[in-house]
Write a protein that binds this DNA or RNA. Structure first.
Lengths: 224, 224
DNA sequence: GTCTATATAATGATAGAC
DNA sequence: GTCTATCATTATATAGAC
């Protein structure tokens, strides 16, 4: 992982091995497999962390911390290049896949990751709307959450469809996803999908009728 | 499930109980829990199905079959209403959540479901493009796959973020998702996200340069 | 700090009675 | 067709030696 040498303490090696094992095969991965990868015995997990749960908590915290660093670094990248090489490094791939596993797993850590990204996305789009780069939404918070769910979700589906993720394959996982998703993403976000406004306008009318009932009847089944 | 009465054979009750348990809590759910819900003993699973794996295979096949029926039925719904009430029924919710669990699980069944939906989506968009309802894509197959991954994925993330899915809560799960996702979906698909074509055009130029190198240099890192 | 060996709990598989 | 009882496997938790 991010420390390139092998001169790590047993505790840190165990933690980094766990991060990679969890990312590669999910949180069901056994302590024995993790210990084997770290080159130590399984009993050492208890000595250093107490339990698998606590080991995982430390992995979660470490990944979140490293992800924040990676994000700040990527802020220095000019926005035009943003689409050519998001994960690029193997380390970045490990972090992203670990986060996807957390979401897949449905753990509180996954929720934390998602909530974090929603907050980031909302800040980003709010600013971008103000600068005229992104079109405004009728509900910015809902759009930000939805777009994060879509982005994370499509990556997650892509990941889940793979037969396996080899431990030396993390960079490829994200690269291959980007290669197939970039064009459709940019098309949809730039040109939309529907050729006219019919569906949107109908739904807006439906919402308006529901919120403000047409004086007389119950507001259900109002739409067409 | 779809047979409303309780006068089912033990085999069918076991299968339907398994579908609901798998949908509610994933495929890790124990045979004992499934048998309890079906009101029979765990040993009966072996007698009827042989193994958990074979029970699950039958659940997969049953869900896929019922999903196809539900899909055909929904074809008779006028397209304008399509957005007001997709899952509506509890049975439809069970099927959808079961499918999401299959994708989450990463099993071959999940892949089958996704591939099915991609094929449907491609047929639908191809037709809709021809009729002028949907804007064309530079790669219809890639867009169809991507949009399915996004749709399934956002529902899956939404599902995974829930603390639990109660067995009597399947209709709500999908309804609540629709309530929060409908407006952003229609906005993005109708109005797009980016205010101008810069990102798309840059990426298209990058692709063109990669495919058809600018006479002289290696085609890497060509983009800005 | 690290290892080996064991205890405990859960689950799927299996056999046999009714 | 259905149930009870038991076995085998696996994984984590734990204790104690070096």
């Amino acid at each position: 992982m991010s420390t390139t040498h092998e001169d790590l303490t047993g505790r840190a090696r165990l933690r980094d091995a766990a991060i990679e094992c969890f990312a590669a095969r999910g949180f069901g991965e056994s302590l024995r497999a993790i210990a084997t990868r770290a080159g130590v015995s399984a009993g050492l997990v208890r000595h250093h962390f107490g339990s698998k749960e606590e080991l995982r908590a430390e992995c979660d915290a470490t990944v979140l911390k490293r992800y924040r660093v990676l994000k700040v670094d990527s802020m220095n990248t000019p926005p035009t290049r943003l689409f050519a090489q998001l994960p690029a490094s193997r380390d970045g791939g490990v972090l992203m896949v670990y986060i996807l596993r957390s979401v897949q797993d449905g753990s509180p850590a996954g929720r934390t990751f998602v909530d974090n990204m929603v907050a980031e996305a909302l800040a980003f789009t709010t600013d971008a709307v103000a600068r005229g780069l992104v079109v405004p939404s009728r509900n910015e918070e809902a759009r930000a959450r939805f777009m994060v769910q879509q982005s994370i979700g499509s990556m997650l589906v892509n990941l889940a469809m793979r037969p396996e993720v080899r431990l030396d394959d993390f960079a490829n996982v994200m690269d291959q996803y980007m290669a197939q998703a970039m064009l459709p993403t940019l098309e949809v976000y730039t040109e939309g999908v529907f050729a006219d406004r019919t569906y949107l306008d109908e739904y807006l009318a439906y919402l308006a009728a529901k919120t403000n009932p047409p004086a007389g009847l119950a507001g259900e089944a109002a739409m067409s």
